[in-house]
């Protein structure tokens, strides 16, 4: 085509920096999430998580979701998708030296008041239902996206996996599960293979989400 392919994730970043509130809270999390504190630690993860929670709390979804849920063509696995994956500064907010077991991570989340309530919201609002047209039991994409973004800045912080299709996961796996392998797989699949969450993200990215439209115009 004559027109260069648009990078939606780049466009969202541009729009954020042209908005005073988004620009302020974006740099307010990127600073702590990219500042090395010692030779051993790439950043202060606690400060990074707190600033990320503030970003999603204070910035209009038009801008914050614009960056987090931007749509990328399948052909583009670099400029667009990598930028989307970098939104939360995963080297600080997401990755760990060792990959924990997902059920252990879930148990650690439940000891924290914020994490426990946000994980519960996510399981309610993004519950898939293959029989419904939306793919969701509660046919409300906005509530699902809000619950998902609410997990960012907790120990359950999810991110996009390097995969051609939209697939997200907290930083954990199901190795060393023993008898709880099935339970652990069910937990991870709620993130990685969730038709409701995937449809909600795609609908926002394509601008076809009826649930959020009027609120953020």
């Amino acid at each position: 085509p004559a027109v260069a392919r648009e990078n939606n994730c780049l466009n969202a970043a541009k729009a954020c920096n042209l908005n005073d509130t988004c620009k302020k809270y974006r740099s307010a999390y990127i600073s702590p999430c990219t500042s090395r504190v010692s030779t051993a630690e790439v950043c202060n993860k606690r400060k990074c998580h707190k600033a990320l929670r503030q970003f999603f709390d204070k910035v209009h979804p038009k801008h914050s979701y614009g960056m987090l849920f931007c749509s990328c063509p399948i052909s583009d696995q670099k400029a667009c998708s990598e930028r989307r994956r970098q939104t939360i500064v995963p080297v600080c907010s997401y990755e760990e030296k060792q990959t924990p077991n997902c059920l252990e991570l879930q148990a650690s989340c439940k000891t924290n008041y914020i994490c426990r309530s946000r994980l519960a919201d996510f399981f309610v609002n993004c519950m898939p239902d293959p029989r419904s047209l939306s793919g969701c039991l509660k046919e409300n994409y906005a509530d699902c996206l809000l619950s998902y973004s609410g997990l960012i800045g907790t120990v359950m912080t999810p991110n996009y996996l390097r995969s051609p299709k939209i697939s997200v996961s907290p930083y954990c796996d199901c190795s060393n599960c023993g008898n709880n392998k099935d339970e652990c797989d069910k937990f991870t699949e709620f993130f990685t293979e969730n038709i409701c969450l995937r449809n909600a993200i795609q609908a926002f990215g394509n601008g076809t989400d009826i649930g959020i439209g009027p609120q953020i115009s």
Binding site: S27, A28, S31, C33, Q86
Partner: peptide, 15 residues
């Protein structure tokens, strides 16, 4: 003005 952050072409953040 408030700080400005951006991601460069090599996927590195700057403030």
């Amino acid at each position: 003005d408030d700080d400005l952050s951006f991601l460069d072409d090599n996927v590195v953040y700057h403030t």
